[in-house]
C-alpha cells in the first residue's frame, strides 16, 4: 500500500546512508503560543541556502508547545546551516508587513542574523561528530 512519505522517510532518502554518519540534534526553543507549523530547512552550501532549494533535509511539524526537538541520523561530516520559521496561521508562508519585516517567528542556526536574515556563513555549523544545534525562535 502506498502511504505518504513521513519526514523521517524523506530524511532517509535525502541523506546518503553512511556507516559512520553523525547524529545531529535540533532543538528549537521559544516557539510562541501553541498552534501553527514549524518549517525548517537545512543546507550544506551557500548556493543552495541562497536559492532555498536542494536542502539536505527539511521538515514541517505541528507546534504544540514552546520547544520542538528532533534528531537527524547518519549525517556526514560537513558544514550545515538551518533556517526555520513558525507558520503561525498555517498559510504556508512567512508573513511580513509592507516593509518585508516578518510578522511570524523565525530563526537561524548559531542564532545568527542579528538584524534580519542570516547569511549561510553566519549560520553555518561544522559537523564532525554527534552534536546539538539550538535555535531560539525570535
Amino acid at each position: 500500500m502506498l502511504r505518504p512519505l513521513s519526514i523521517f522517510t524523506l530524511l532517509c532518502l535525502s541523506i546518503p546512508p553512511l556507516a559512520h554518519g553523525h547524529d545531529l540534534k535540533l532543538v528549537v526553543r521559544n516557539l510562541s503560543e501553541p498552534g501553527g507549523t514549524l518549517n525548517w530547512m537545512m543546507f550544506d552550501s551557500a548556493q543552495s541556502y541562497d536559492a532555498g532549494d536542494n536542502s539536505v533535509a527539511s521538515g514541517r511539524h505541528r507546534v504544540t508547545g514552546d520547544t520542538i526537538e528532533l534528531t537527524l541520523h547518519g549525517l556526514p561530516d560537513g558544514t550545515y546551516a538551518v533556517r526555520l520559521f513558525h507558520d503561525e496561521n498555517n498559510n504556508g508562508e512567512l508573513d511580513t508587513n509592507l516593509l518585508g519585516i516578518p510578522r511570524e517567528g523565525y530563526g537561524f542556526s548559531n542564532n545568527s542574523g542579528e538584524r534580519g536574515p542570516a547569511s549561510f556563513d553566519d549560520a553555518a555549523v561544522a559537523v564532525h561528530g554527534d552534536q546539538t544545534i539550538e535555535i531560539r525562535v525570535r
Binding site: P102, E114, R138
Partner: peptide, 9 residues
C-alpha cells in the same frame, strides 16, 4: 543580547 525578530522586539 538576543537577536530581534523586528523593530517590535
Amino acid at each position: 543580547s538576543l537577536p530581534v525578530r523586528s523593530n517590535e522586539s
